[in-house]
Design a protein around this nucleic acid. Structure first.
Length: 425
RNA sequence: GGAGAGAUGGCUGAGCGGUCGAAAGCGGCGGUCUUGAAAACCGUUGUAGAGCAAUCUACCGGGGGUUCGAAUCCCUCUCUCUCCGCCA
């Protein structure tokens, strides 16, 4: 959520920053409500002060045996007025909240305006594989080697699902183990969160209310509104780890990582080119997460990108890093870098990790603060997340990159301690 | 799933419908004492909003109600704990 104080102080500045991300912004109405809210607050609070004053006077007068009917009838009126003003105040506050809930995060100063076309590749690593034979695509390889079973996956989960089997499952699990070992090495704390979350979690993360349709809702009993949903990424869980908490400055940064499958509707996003395992309703991902002080969040983002790159380098896969333009960052994020893997058969780079700094956007929604040691004041933390990593893009990249002329796959060295085999035939 | 108990400040735990933002203890912070520390003693100690400020307002799980006035009474929801049943 945006900071209303920022808008109050310099609406033009906030507006110009937001215009990098959305087509138009008009704060006129909001500022009007905001003013109205403060007027009402002032009015209702002085009435309450009056009520408190007389309410403590009444028992004293009674004790002295004096008549209090006059006070009682005045207070009756005052109380009625308070009730009216309070509900008006609530309506105004709701309008403000609703408005702010609809606003995306303010892009960081160094994030450029516009959509995908303005994304900028800032680095590349490795080379595209140049096989001396005609390479196969990952679907063909996965099926012929018995690693992925698409037909049976669909039999169980319906369209958009697959299953891993045999050495495919082992390879998938090896990837996850490789990531876990790396994060533990770097002293990130391992979290295995619930996969079914309450709606508040989606709100804190910034997915609700605007993007509530992108996730699988858990149907409620009788006709009540659904209260739970399947997490679309463990970020949604992790941001809520410290919800409504006040951390100590010296315990920041807090560094976590979690493994969960990610469940997404991906409604209407089916594309023939993304068959295979590029896009499904469920995929495995390990997510890194940090809570930091505002002054340290940029540094933390660098660290997360470095860690994600380290994992891919270890696998020897060709990738590039892009800095996203404002519109390509998700609503909650101020700045995002994507790490994209080269998928030979698609002749394209596909996102394997998205590394973002949300600034205080999520922590304001989740009321996640820390106490400054020197001033004793509470401030909102900054939150950051980065995939480390999603396997659904890695698996295809590995198959296609490490395929041999005889159709076998060489297992990247870093995974062999976990697979216990070095070749898939 | 059945039965019961409960939800109060960082923690433990009192609380009569009328100065209760809330006793007490612990913890934290500051001080006295001490070569230093401990102990002891004294003081202090929540969050948020409005206002230039003095100050005011709200918050005792959430929401609603009764009342001039609610932590305290009523309704409702959520959560936690105990016991029984079931179960990986």
């Amino acid at each position: 959520m945006l900071d209303i104080n920022l808008i109050r102080k310099d609406p033009e500045k906030v507006k110009n920053a937001l215009l990098k991300k959305i087509d138009n912004v008009d704060f006129a109405e909001l500022l009007e409500w905001d003013k109205q809210k403060r007027d009402l607050t002032h009015k209702v609070e002085s009435l309450k002060a009056r009520r408190n004053e007389v309410s403590s006077l009444i028992p004293r007068l009674k004790k002295e045996g004096k008549d209090v009917t006059e006070q009682l009838s005045e207070m009756k009126k005052v109380s009625d007025t308070i009730k009216d003003l309070d509900s008006e105040l609530e309506r105004t506050s709701d309008k403000i909240t609703e408005f702010l809930n609809g606003m995306p995060n303010i892009p960081a100063d160094d994030v450029v305006a516009g959509g995908k076309e303005n994304n900028r590749v800032i680095s590349e690593w490795g080379n595209k594989p140049q096989p001396s034979f005609t390479p196969k695509d990952h679907m063909t390889l996965a099926v012929s080697l018995g690693l992925i079973d698409y037909d049976r996956g669909v039999k169980m989960g319906g369209n958009g699902f697959w299953l891993y089997k045999g050495k495919g499952a082992i390879l998938e699990w090896a990837l996850l183990n490789y990531f876990v070992a790396s994060h533990l090495e770097d002293n990130y704390e391992f979290i295995l969160p619930p996969h079914i979350l309450i709606n508040q979690c989606g709100y804190t993360a910034g997915q609700f209310p605007k993007f509530a349709d992108d996730v699988f809702r858990i149907e409620a009993d009788d006709k009540k509104e659904s209260t739970h949903f399947l997490l679309p990424t463990s970020e949604t869980a992790l941001i809520n780890f410290h919800r409504d908490e006040i951390l100590k400055e010296e315990e920041l940064p807090k560094k976590y990582f979690a493994y969960t499958p990610c469940y997404r509707k991906e409604a209407g996003s089916y594309r023939a080119s993304e068959r295979g395992m590029i896009r499904g309703h469920q995929f495995n991902k390990i997510e890194m997460f940090q809570f930091t002080t505002p002054e340290n969040s940029d540094k933390a983002l660098d660290e997360l990108i470095f860690k994600a790159e380290k994992l891919i380098k270890g696998l020897g896969l060709h990738y590039r890093v892009s800095k996203l333009a404002a519109q390509d960052c998700s609503a909650s994020m101020a700045k995002t870098f994507d790490i994209e893997l080269w998928i030979p058969s698609m002749n394209e780079y596909k996102e394997a990790s998205s590394c973002s700094n949300a600034h205080d956007f999520q922590s304001r929604r989740g009321n996640i603060r820390f106490k400054r040691t020197d001033t004793g004041k509470n401030e909102l933390v900054h939150s950051l997340n980065a995939s480390g990593l999603a396997t659904s893009r890695l698996f295809p990249a590995i198959l296609e990159t490490y395929q041999q002329s005889d159709g076998s796959i060489i297992v990247p060295e870093v995974l062999r301690p976990y697979t216990k085999f070095d070749k898939i035939v």
